[in-house]
Amino acid sequence: MKPDNPLVTGLALVAGLIFLSPALYSIWMSFQAADAFYAGKLKFTLDNYALAIGQYHFARYLLNSIIVSGLVTVIGITLSTMAAYAFARYEFPGGNFLFGAVIATLMIPSHISLIPNYLTLAKVDLLDTYAGLILPAISNGFAAFFLRQYIRGIPRALDEAAYMDGARPWQVLWRVIVPIAKPAILSMGLYVFITEWNNYIWPLVAVGKEDLYTLQIGLARLYRLNPGEGGIDWPLVMAASTITILPVLIGFVLIERHLVRGITMGAVK
């Protein structure tokens, strides 16, 4: 990477800060005492976070979001990788048809299944449970498609060698394919995790019990239902918003490259 003219770099930094200013200011605001904020003064405090975590249960929502997004990612990526492997390596009757059915889900708007999925889960008594939040989000046609393309790029000779050594198909997948496809699997995993972390409409319909709120639902409710004195308590809401953003933000900073590669590979290939 070329380090360019310091002036240009400085300007770029300023432009970036202006673009992000609403979000940056919201984080700044979350550390202000509400009364001072409305009086136009500065007073740093952690009270908003204490309030969000204590009285408004954001620690619980955080835990729920981690559980739901984590399980959706692990189960979803496992199933996608298994299917991708079979689609990439086997010719089998109905294989093309099934692969077509997987690809077609990319074109199907998820909202057509909103009411039916609600009814399905009501029938088996899984509304207001973790399972109810997780199950409809598991299947991911894009991940399966993307991983299949990646696995097709891995030389078959590696599989053959493993079969010679007496490996079973699932051992080939686990010992040969998965280690080589690890970068692709990680990119996709990250993408699925962030998508699920930010999912809103499904938890909104599937969960009524406060114990099971994810961060997104908790934040939307707090914003809607918690007016402070003479209006919304913005610093408190922004503390809750910061808790909602932060885990993904940290992950993004750590692994930006992986994520960007995952997203662009899917688009340009």
């Binding site: 990477m1 070329k2 380090p3 360019d4 240009v8 770099t9 300007l11 770029a12 930094l13 432009a15 970036g16 800060l17 673009f19 992000l20 979000a23 919201s26 962030i194 972390w197 930010n198 809103y200 961060l215 997104q216 934040l219 939307a220 918003s241 909602t244 953003i245 993904v248 933000l249 993004f252 930006e256 994520l259 960007v260």
Partner: peptide
């Protein structure tokens, strides 16, 4: 271009995309 300033701006522009829509 692969320069530091381009890198900074790409990062800044991309951040909202991974940020929670509710936030």
């Amino acid at each position: 271009r692969e320069t530091l300033s381009a890198r900074i701006l790409r990062g800044a522009l991309f951040l909202p995309f991974v940020t929670s829509t509710v936030s």
